[in-house]
């Protein structure tokens, strides 16, 4: 499964895995959005610990979910991305909209 979602109260964690590119992002997006609309979610955590690869399609995915959460009055964050993916994310400035945290919740 490229996405596994788990709900803890109103906190939804979406664990992404494998490669995120234009081809795989579409399914990930609908999977996450379905979980957001079906549950009362105030916070979305995108768990990147099992992501092996990401190009700018992943930035679009994070930006889109972050926008959706802010429209719903909630928040969105990314946790545990591999170092090289942090680089791709920072290139976009997405970390200013959507905080990225590493091991132990440290802000990256």
């Amino acid at each position: 499964m490229p996405v596994t979602v788990s709900l803890d109260g109103s906190v939804l964690t979406a664990r992404l895995s494998g490669d995120i590119d234009h081809f795989t992002a579409a399914d990930m997006r609908s999977e996450i959005d379905r979980a957001i609309t079906m549950n009362p979610v105030s916070e979305l955590i995108l768990d990147f610990s099992a992501v092996n690869f990401m190009d700018s399609s992943g930035i679009g995915l994070v930006m889109g979910r972050s926008k959706l959460m802010s429209e719903l009055g909630g928040k969105c964050s990314v946790c545990d991305p591999p170092a090289y993916i942090v680089k791709v994310m920072k290139l976009s400035g997405i970390d200013k909209l959507c905080p990225i945290t590493g091991e132990g919740g440290v802000r990256l």
């Binding site: 700018s56 930035i59 679009g60 930006m63 290139l91 976009s92």
Partner: peptide, 14 residues
């Protein structure tokens, strides 16, 4: 509308 970020060329350059 397809959630393209407009950053493909920036990534290639970087």
């Amino acid at each position: 509308e397809e959630e393209r970020a407009g950053l493909g060329f920036s990534v290639m350059e970087s």
